[in-house]
């Protein structure tokens, strides 16, 4: 009994500490994306030491609509992000997801007609030969994967010098070192920092700070990045009055890519909440049942 109470107290203290830890739960409360310079960050968080010689700062922590216990995607933002991807990124990068997922109601939520029309603008080569034995080209269908700009990574490397990575899992495939003890707080409720990849990609897109060297990036390890500055102000037209700045483009396209790499996030968090409530109630009931039964033995 006493031991259990000690554990309960200790974990309560730990949770309390986590809540007041830098970049705590406040980050979860603003679903609308503020401009980059207002972004919330762990102000008191020291930059983890990087390897000597190639100093690059840690990306700052941003506020994302999809972070936290109840995080969801902002549909308008994903649609803007898709536009940035479609007009800019897609010139070099592939995004191997089916067109149909773009109509995902918890994702970009395009209408079926929009997705069908979009797919039809692409030419797709059939993977099976037709009755003449030819691999026919045809307009894309919603069930197709979005075709990349190059037929394979080798062709992309031949044209661009280096093959740009596929973007379907790009945000999940990027990180920056959080260091001790921050990585522990990142796992705890209320802090729950799972957007390191998004913050890193966002930082890189905003990290082209040398006007005379378009392949120099403040946040890229070693600073020399193969991708020249991809975004500039006013490059993509927004129809909803959102500012057309690099920072805003970066924020929108990173949100879109986060959705592309984790399209089931909203469903996951929704089911998760039910599971947690169920398990906590179940544990409480089991605890009192166990206590009642053991009374006879003590």
């Amino acid at each position: 009994m006493i031991r259990l109470r000690t554990i309960a107290l200790a974990s309560a203290a730990l949770l309390g500490f986590a809540a007041f830890a830098p970049a705590g739960f406040a980050a979860n409360e603003q679903p609308s994306p503020p401009p980059a310079n207002e972004a919330k960050q762990g102000a008191s968080q020291p930059t983890p030491p990087t390897e000597a010689g190639e100093e690059q700062p840690s990306p700052t922590r941003q506020s994302w609509s999809f972070s936290g216990l109840f995080g969801t995607y902002d549909q308008a933002q994903l649609q803007r992000g898709f536009k940035v991807y479609h007009d800019v990124c897609a010139n070099c990068h592939s995004l191997s997801i089916p067109f149909r997922t773009l109509s995902d109601p918890t994702g970009p939520g395009f209408s079926d007609a929009q997705v069908k029309a979009l797919a039809a603008t692409y030419q797709v080569t059939d993977t099976e030969p037709n009755d003449k034995g030819e691999y026919a080209k045809r307009p894309g269908r919603p069930s197709d994967l979005i075709p990349g700009p190059y037929p394979n990574p080798e062709a992309a490397a031949a044209a661009l010098g280096k093959a740009p990575p596929d973007m379907s899992t790009l945000v999940k495939a990027r990180k920056y070192e959080r260091g001790f003890p921050w990585f522990i707080f990142d796992a705890l409720p209320f802090d729950q920092y799972q957007e390191v990849g998004a913050d890193y990609v966002y930082a890189v897109l905003n990290g082209y700070t040398k006007a005379d060297d378009l392949n120099w990036n403040l946040y890229y390890p070693g600073h020399k990045i193969a991708m020249p500055k991809p975004l500039s102000d006013g490059q993509v037209d927004y129809t909803d009055g959102t500012p057309t700045t690099v920072a805003q483009y970066a924020r929108d396209v990173v949100s879109f890519l986060y959705w592309a790499s984790e399209p089931t996030l909203v469903e996951r968090k929704k089911i998760g909440m039910r599971v947690m409530v169920f398990l906590i109630v179940l544990s409480a009931l089991l605890y009192f049942t166990k206590k009642r039964v053991w009374e006879k033995a003590h």
Partner: peptide, 26 residues
């Protein structure tokens, strides 16, 4: 049941925390 609470926390809220980001690159 208490253990499952922790397990569910990882699965539903921080599913990629323990994995390495590099494993999402082919």
């Amino acid at each position: 049941a208490v253990f499952l609470i922790v397990y569910a926390w990882f699965v539903f809220y921080i599913p990629n925390y323990l994995g390495d980001a590099d494993n999402y690159i082919k």
